[in-house]
Design a protein around this nucleic acid. Structure first.
Lengths: 248, 248
DNA sequence: CGATTTTTTGACTTACCTCAACGCAGGTGG
DNA sequence: CCACCTGCGTTGAGGTAAGTCAAAAAATCG
């Protein structure tokens, strides 16, 4: 357990990197002030558990920096990731006392936490928070449904390619994807966490990564840094429709 | 294609069987009146497609009677169900023009449709609709996450047992489940639709059903009628935690 | 009562899992 | 500075759950 002190800046809301994408995106100055008064920051090191399923959870939060994962575990140890929270994603459920899933920091994480009771009040009194949360929840539901297709019907190779394309899209918010430019990013997950995401074993993940590398769909620089020479070629491996889909 | 005329009663909202569970659950008399003015009923026979993915969809709806399914299809024909809509469930997404998934009536279905534009207006002006929709969407997201565990990590036998327990819970709204009473219900899905739900082939579904029958976990009366002599024994086959979980 | 759809069952194949060994950093402490 | 861990990741050999292909049996329907 490394003793590094995490040093994320404590932002004013107006300076916050997720100001316009998180649950507070639609808030006006007044509303933001209210939120500011019930918020506090917490940080977690990579690998730490943020909450255990079943624990009392007296806050909800936005991920400001880093990546957190939601997982479910069966009695015999089989594990499935059911949520991957990147910056601006929302954690927790208003009107729910206890956490439904294990939440783990997969990288160093900073959360912007809101005490649950006052947050719930705000949802009743100011419409913009609830409206934004509905929109975000609907987006998550869509993502969950894509994920279900992946889990239920895709081959191991397609799963890996799909996962890489999802991470590439979200990490490189650049919209140069689509054209056949080179894309590079760091994987925020271990092979084991990838396996939990994809419903595979870590050995299969490793083998398929090697396979994609051998076929020059991806390049590996170190274990975690991925270079995608041609995004189109990766997309061909995902099994998804070639035309964009996903109209907004 | 049978030419039976579907005859579901056209209800007043006040008489509606899903009045207190659907998106309108929280509405007061005024709000209900507004909803009533933009609603209309539509019926579909078992097997009919309600909308195709990509089609323009100028309504949202509540399922009043019957069962509908959302499915995704890959280019080569692999299919995954990603939503199963039972009475009171909500169909469609406000602020979205086109359907994201194929929607099919798996039994005869009656929908209570709301024209999309006025429905969106209502969501902005009256809080109760949006609040209820958020709650329902969060519940669906939880269900999707259970489903992801099933797809990613459960064995074929566990998948079947889990599916049967889910349907049993929702079809027999009776809360006599939990005690070891006999439970009986009709499957609203063909073997093929079950396979699409579970990420299996229909042959595997059939084999596992036969297996559960041979082991007397279930009885089959006809192909569609299921009797569960002891719900506890079925639950033991699902792979889920023995203790209830799911506190609400 | 045939025709068609749905379901079951069987024989064989395969994609992924399991178990096991090995490689490679990165830190730690003598 | 080097030996030694420890945590990740890779690779190999062999097994198995579920898929595929094929055909028969049941149910449904005109």
């Amino acid at each position: 357990m490394p003793k590094t002190q995490l040093a994320f800046p404590q932002e004013q809301c107006s300076e916050c990197p997720i100001r316009h994408r998180a649950v507070c995106a639609r808030c006006d100055t007044d509303e933001l002030e209210k939120l500011e008064s019930i918020k506090y920051y917490r940080t977690f090191e990579a690998g730490q558990t943020i909450v255990w399923a079943g624990d009392k959870m007296d806050f909800v939060a936005s991920v400001v920096h880093g990546v957190a994962s939601l997982t479910q575990t069966m009695e015999d140890g089989r594990r499935q990731m059911v949520g991957l929270l990147l910056p601006s994603d929302f954690l927790g459920r208003p009107n729910r006392e206890t956490a439904a899933y294990d939440v783990t920091a997969t990288t160093d994480v900073q959360l912007c936490c809101f005490r649950r009771a006052p947050f719930q009040d705000m949802m009743l009194t100011t419409p913009h928070v609830g409206q934004r949360l509905l929109e975000m929840t609907l987006d998550e539901l869509d993502a969950a449904r894509e994920w279900m297709l992946l889990l239920g019907r895709k081959t191991a190779r397609e799963k890996i390619a799909s996962f890489l394309s999802i991470i590439a899209r979200r990490e490189t918010s650049v919209q140069n994807i689509g054209g056949a430019g080179e894309v590079a990013f760091d994987l925020p997950l271990t092979r084991e966490a990838m396996a939990d995401y994809l419903g595979l074993t870590l050995e299969t993940v490793s083998r398929q990564m090697s396979g994609l590398k051998k076929d020059e769909v991806i390049r590996l620089e170190g274990k975690r840094h991925i270079v995608i020479p041609d995004f189109e070629i990766l997309m061909d491996e995902t099994g998804d429709d070639s035309d964009g889909g996903m109209p907004e």
